[in-house]
């Protein structure tokens, strides 16, 4: 069972039945893994803010969901997250690639590497960075906790955890 299988298994354990996604090369394998599960409705979207909106709508249908995207997309949609989910106190569980970390040497990732977490802190969005495989089993707890927090929660996956080579 690889790391994406493990994350998928924990999302299933948390009761997730819908995934709204937009690709980033670090999380594409996870997106493919989730999309392969016939018990999870896969909703590809046109831009990352829509992952938040899909999940917010699913919340009111009683369906547990996850938004999967890259760090760039998260950075660009934090304001819309605020006006929708902070405004109405709606929990949304996000899994995001930790792009822009010290081991990510793509020039177009450097801004998000420096500014996404300070921005999350400014909005008071809780987050956690998962760097080791044995931390993946905390996902069901994190899921329950984010519902209690009534706001978006971001789980960052590191390059080391994902075993990314060339991206």
């Amino acid at each position: 069972m690889d790391v994406n299988d493990q994350i998928h298994a924990q999302l299933v354990k948390a009761g997730v039945r819908l995934a709204a996604t937009l690709p980033d090369d670090w999380v594409n394998s996870l997106i493919r893994r989730v999309a392969k599960d016939n018990q999870i409705r896969h909703v590809p979207v046109g831009r990352e803010a829509e992952t938040i909106a899909v999940c917010a709508g699913a919340f009111f249908g009683g369906v547990r969901s996850v938004a999967i995207m890259g760090n760039t997309g998260l950075l660009t949609c934090t304001g819309e997250m605020a006006t929708l989910t902070l405004r109405h106190a709606i929990p949304v569980f996000c899994i995001v690639s930790g792009r822009g970390s010290i081991d990510d040497h793509k020039v177009y990732q450097e801004v998000q590497g420096r500014r996404t977490i300070p921005l999350l802190q400014a909005y008071d969005y809780p987050y956690r960075v998962i760097d080791k495989a044995d931390e993946i089993e905390s996902i069901p707890d994190a899921y329950e906790w984010h519902r209690l927090q009534k706001r978006p929660f971001v789980l960052f996956l590191t390059k080391k955890l994902l075993g990314v080579k060339n991206a």
């Binding site: 909703v43 979207v45 249908g61 369906v63 819309e80 929708l84 109405h88």
Partner: peptide
Amino acid sequence: SFYMHGGMGLAATFALGLALSI
């Protein structure tokens, strides 16, 4: 009925998430 008070541009996608859930 849900009267969205923010997230301009996202009502249709919110409704989609709801529709897929019910």
